[in-house]
Computed example of a mutant assay.
Amino acid sequence: MFDLEGSDDQRLQRARARVAVQFGFRDGRTRLARLHQSGSAKALMPDLPGSPEVVFLNTAGGLTGGDRVEFNLDLEAGARATATTQAAERVYAAASGVARMRCRASVGAGGALDWLPQETILYDRAALERETVIDLAGDARLLFCETLVLGRAAMGEELRALRLRDRREIRRDGRPELVDCVRMDEGVLALAADPAVLGGARAVALLALVAPGAEDALGPVRALLDEPGVAAAASAWNGRCLVRLMAGDAWPLRRQMIRLLTQIRGTAPPRVWQM
């Protein structure tokens, strides 16, 4: 057992990082209104046609116990944008303390956000607490995904110790639309092969479309849930369409996710997702 509750060792260098991006909507276009960056957190905005794309980046190269990272994105009414990460976020072994990540986004009425981070890879003895909160106003649209990978199968990694608290909350006009919490520790890992837990899966994901009429996406989404090596199920109700996926390895799950995102978006995922 390793120390997750103890205070951070101040002798070790810790990441302290924050980035905040705000877009307005002027003259029929989404335009950058504000950008703040500090520490190892950066936001890249490639020059692409169409709506802006924000690529969040943690230049520290990964997270470990004691690190603090915060990503913020605000879209004013009518603004549209895609947010992603430059690469998979790696959470390394923690000697002490817990890595904490906070992600916040807001979307004004008539706006649209595709929140599409790449995978989070958890190494043995990783300790992560992450909270993602997205506020939608009026008829705003959100496409959201989150993928967790329990070690790298190709490297033969096995997770024996872990602490994960991953909370995702989506609200519309201040009321919860979707609250999804993932908690993993040694007890869960010990039962990972049980069909009632992970069924031996090393990669799990949530894909959610939260928008007026999201139920219409259910049929086309279900028709795509045939990727070999991936178990998935989809449901829809009251302006939500959810897909849960699990696989023995991250690659087939990623292929399935790319197909789903392409179907829902009507275009390929962000360029940094390209395999």
Results as ranks from 00 to 15, higher is better:
R31W: 01
P252W: 04
T147H: 08
V107I: 11
A79N: 09
L207M: 14
R168P: 05
S96T: 14
L57W: 05
G200R: 03
L191R: 15
V149W: 10
L136P: 01
D8F: 06
T59M: 14
L75E: 10
P270T: 08
A268M: 04
G65T: 06
T132D: 06
D216R: 15
V179N: 05
L48P: 02
G239V: 03
A20Q: 11
V221A: 12
I121S: 01
Y123F: 15
R202V: 02
R244T: 05
T132K: 05
D180G: 09
C145G: 05
E186L: 05
D27F: 01
G199V: 09
D8A: 13
Q10T: 12
D139A: 10
L209G: 02
A79C: 05
V182M: 14
R152I: 05
R11G: 03
T147G: 06
V210F: 01
L142T: 12
A211V: 04
E131F: 03
G24A: 10
A105N: 09
A268P: 01
Q86K: 09
D226R: 14
R183M: 09
R244D: 04
R167L: 10
V204N: 02
R163H: 15
G24R: 12
R31P: 03
R68A: 14
G219S: 15
R171N: 05
R202C: 06
G174T: 11
A203T: 01
W237Y: 11
A234G: 05
L44T: 00
L12F: 12
A33Q: 12
R240I: 07
G61Q: 07
Q256Y: 01
T147I: 06
G213L: 11
R26W: 08
L63W: 11
D47G: 10
A77C: 11
V210C: 12
L245C: 07
P49W: 07
T82K: 04
M45C: 06
T262M: 02
L73C: 11
L178E: 13
A17D: 12
A93R: 15
A77H: 08
T82W: 10
R265Y: 03
A190Q: 11
A201L: 01
T64L: 06
G219K: 14
C145M: 13
G97M: 08
L189K: 06
L142C: 08
P252E: 07
F144M: 13
G239I: 03
Y123V: 00
R102D: 13
T30D: 04
A81N: 08
T64V: 14
R172T: 06
D139Q: 11
I170K: 06
I264G: 00
L4H: 10
F2M: 08
A95F: 03
R31M: 10
L35N: 06
A79S: 09
R255T: 07
L253Y: 07
D173P: 15
G108D: 08
R11C: 02
R104T: 14
E129I: 02
A83L: 12
G66N: 07
P52D: 10
M1G: 14
E169F: 02
L164K: 04
R80K: 11
W115I: 07
G138H: 03
E157G: 09
L122G: 09
R80M: 06
A203D: 06
A231D: 12
M101V: 15
V182D: 12
E129L: 01
A201T: 00
L122R: 02
L113S: 04
V197E: 12
R130E: 10
D47V: 04
L164N: 06
R167S: 14
L207P: 13
P212M: 02
L159V: 08
A137G: 04
R244N: 10
A60G: 15
A140I: 09
